[in-house]
Amino acid sequence: MSGGNADSVEPNLTPMLDMVFQLVTFFMLVINFKGASMDLSLKLPVLSSARPVEWHGKKEPLVLNLKEDGSVTAFGSPIPDIEKFVVRETRVMRDYLKSEGATNLDEMPIPVIVRADGRAPFAQVNKVIKLCQNNGFRQFQLSAMSAAEAKAP
């Protein structure tokens, strides 16, 4: 029978550590924090001319998800009072822009991304858009799936 320490077998953990670090690096690179603001259960309309908009170096837009029944969610949470929510978000954005030296904030330089279900009635979408307009938003991005993306399995 062999004696204790001298015969203990220690696996070489270095290759496993290398592989795990490579996996961690991969997931760090592909992680999408913006996805948290999107309600992936929505069935967006399909448009051939919808193109992804890049926001590098620009202010983060306000993302509003509108379900078929007209209820609104933002960052995964339902918004019971959309009016209060938009007013609060606008105030936070204005304070931030003022701290950065912006002066004329009658028209917000930040766009609103409206992610509405394709079956949502126009009345509900218009209500949300009007609320944003009343708070100074003029630039809107209407979300849709591109035709190629919709065909993908």
């Binding site: 448009l47 992804p52 908009v53 809107f140 209407l142 993306e149």
Partner: peptide, 21 residues
């Protein structure tokens, strides 16, 4: 690795129509 796997949600690439309303 567990954290990144659990929080990984591949979002479909969606487009936008830019309009000034």
């Amino acid at each position: 690795l567990t954290f990144f796997i659990l929080t990984f949600r591949p979002a479909p690439t969606e487009g936008q129509l830019a309009v000034n309303i």
